[in-house]
Every structure is written in C-alpha cells, then in structure tokens.
Amino acid sequence: MIDKQSPLPIYYQIEKDLKDRIERGEWQEGHMIPSEREYAEHYNVSRMTVRQAITNLVNDGFLRRQRGKGTFVASKKIQQKMVRLTSFTEDMKQRNMIATTKVLSFTLMKADSLTAALFQMNEGEEIAEVQRMRLADGLPMALETSKLNLRLLQGITEKVIQHSLYDYIEHTLNLKVGAAVQKLEASVARQHESALLQITKGSPVLLMTRETKLKDGQVFESVKSVYRGDRYAFVMEMNREG
C-alpha cells in the first residue's frame, strides 16, 4: 500500500507496487491493467500521480499503451549478451524464436567518400544499401539499414538478404566473419521509425551502429539498427581482471 508519510514519492511507490505484481507473475503478458481513474480512487491520489507511475513503467518496457483500448503488460525483453558477434537470426534461434526479415528496400548506389574510405575502395564504386525489418515470432524488433561492400560480397541480391547475411557469407562465399566495432546509445523513435516498428513517435529505442570485418580485416558492412526499447536489451559481461 501507499505510505503518504514516506520520503519516497507517491508515484514511485505506485510504480513499485505495479512492477512487483508483474514480476511476481500476478499479471501475465497481455493483461490489461485497471484505468488511471480506478487507480487514483484505489490509492486515493490524483490521476496525474498515477499517470506518472504508469508512464515510467511504459518507458521501462513493463507496460505498453494501446490507443483506444488501454494499458497492457508488455512482452518480456529479449536480452542479447554482447560477448560474441552473432547475427539477428542466430540470436533468435538461440532463444527458440522464429526470426523473419522483411526487406523494405534494396538499392545499388555509388559509394560516397566516407563509405569508400571505410570499405577501402574508390569513391563512386558500387555498393548496396539495404533496409530491413527484423521480426521475432512475427513481432517487429528492429529496423536495420546496411551498406554492403559488393567488392567482397559478390552475388548479393534482395532474395539473399531475406535470410541471414552471415550464413551466406560463411557458407556460400566461404569467407569468415571476423570482428566488429559496435556502438550503442539511447534514442527516441522518429516518425517513420515509429510507424514501421509499431510504436508511438518519441518512444525509447536503442540505436546501434556497427562496422563488421572479415577475418582478414576488410570491412564488409556498415549497419545502423534501431531496436524497440520495450522489447530488446543488450547485456554486457565485464571482468575486472585484464
């Protein structure tokens, strides 16, 4: 219950109470929680206070709002450990989830100066730019935009990238994926991203950029991915030694 004499803010106490119910399994995924008005009456507080608690839980991925219907318990986040370079398809397979890809665009273009320098090619050489929607069990997880080095990745077509790019590289081209430099930061969904990811504009997202190399050190892709903040989490394991 709420202790109005506590130094803890009332909205925080409500937030913790609702979060505890989710974590105890009292409310299952997809459960519709009571309205703000009902909670305001239950806790004897203002609707604004309840709204702040619920908004915090939505932003943290515990709840999701559905316009015109209500607020529901969200799906649990998929956690990806950042200890090994894997593809999205491999990540989902490890979690017994079905990964699918929707190709939004496949465009052949000339490399600009920055991309040419990254791929160690001449400016104006042909590369491919690909935009894909990545889904797990049919649910949108990430919007991915990639620039591909066609000098290294011969035979890349729209059909190929509907599946795992890394699988094609290693089993069809007989090349070895080596290492990547990856950066992760917090961001918010822009208009076109929110429409594709089925979230509201301004919702929290995880912005990931990566440059991936073959075993011999040549960069074959530059990727920008926007992950739904309510469905995806990156986990890092760190050791004090070394």
Results as ranks from 00 to 15, higher is better:
A53F: 02
A53H: 02
A53V: 00
A53K: 01
T55P: 12
N56D: 06
L57S: 01
L57E: 04
L57Y: 01
L57D: 06
L57A: 02
V58H: 07
V58F: 10
V58T: 12
V58Y: 08
N59V: 11
N59T: 11
N59L: 06
D60L: 12
D60Q: 13
G61E: 11
G61S: 13
G61A: 07
G61I: 07
F62V: 07
F62P: 11
F62G: 09
R64M: 05
R64H: 01
R64T: 08
R64S: 04
R64P: 00
R64A: 04
R65W: 01
R65Y: 07
Q66R: 12
Q66A: 09
Q66N: 08
R67V: 06
R67A: 08
G68H: 08
G68P: 08
K69A: 10
K69Y: 08
K69D: 08
K69W: 04
G70N: 04
G70T: 01
G70V: 04
T71K: 06
F72R: 02
F72T: 01
V73Q: 03
V73G: 03
V73N: 02
V73W: 05
A74R: 00
A74K: 00
S75G: 11
S75Q: 13
S75H: 15
S75K: 15
K76F: 02
K76P: 03
K76N: 07
K77S: 06
I78S: 02
I78M: 09
Q79H: 09
Q80P: 14
K81C: 14
K81Q: 15
K81W: 14
K81A: 15
M82C: 14
M82Y: 12
M82T: 15
M82I: 15
V83C: 01
V83M: 06
R84E: 11
R84I: 04
R84Y: 06
L85W: 00
L85R: 01
L85Y: 00
T86Y: 13
T86W: 14
S87P: 00
F88Y: 14
F88M: 07
F88E: 10
T89P: 02
T89W: 12
E90K: 11
E90Q: 12
D91Y: 09
M92A: 14
M92L: 13
M92Q: 13
M92G: 12
M92I: 09
M92R: 08
K93D: 14
K93E: 15
Q94H: 12
Q94E: 14
R95M: 15
R95P: 11
R95N: 12
R95L: 15
R95K: 15
N96V: 05
N96R: 12
N96M: 08
M97D: 06
M97S: 06
I98T: 14
I98Y: 11
A99K: 06
A99M: 03
A99L: 06
T100N: 11
T100K: 06
T100C: 05
T101E: 13
T101C: 10
T101P: 09
K102D: 13
K102P: 05
V103L: 11
V103S: 03
V103F: 03
V103R: 00
V103C: 07
V103W: 04
L104R: 04
L104F: 05
L104N: 07
L104H: 03
F106I: 09
F106G: 07
T107E: 14
L108C: 00
L108G: 03
L108V: 04
